[in-house]
């Protein structure tokens, strides 16, 4: 058995103006095959106008075990939200 083709992550832009969104993965020998396979596998019903493929090994992620500590700095900063400010009655457009 030959070693399988590398794995790719697939991102699809569903319509102009929207961001690409991760939809799944596939195997392909090279970029061109990855894009063509992605088209056949993930856009059979007009689901996309643009596709990105990225080798799975090149996608890096935060460690779920450290998520709490990693994201902690943003949690206690209520002053970053407009809702933590008092707007006096009658003041508009603020």
């Amino acid at each position: 058995m030959t070693k399988g083709w590398p794995q790719w992550e697939v991102f699809v832009r569903s319509e102009a103006g929207l961001a690409h969104k991760h939809v799944g993965s596939l195997h392909a020998a090279d970029v061109r095959m990855a894009l063509e396979n992605a088209r056949d596998l993930y856009t059979r019903r007009n689901e996309g106008v643009s596709i990105w493929v990225v080798r799975s090994e090149d996608v890096h992620a935060t460690d779920p075990d450290e998520a709490e500590a990693f994201f902690e700095p943003s949690e206690d900063k209520r002053y970053r939200f407009p809702t933590s400010y008092h707007v006096p009655e009658g003041v508009e457009h603020l």
Binding site: S56, E57, V59, H60, A61, T62, D63, D65, E66
Partner: peptide, 12 residues
């Protein structure tokens, strides 16, 4: 600190 998603299942 970070992991590659393709080897995400390590020695856990």
């Amino acid at each position: 600190m970070y992991t590659s998603i393709s080897d995400g299942i390590d020695g856990n």
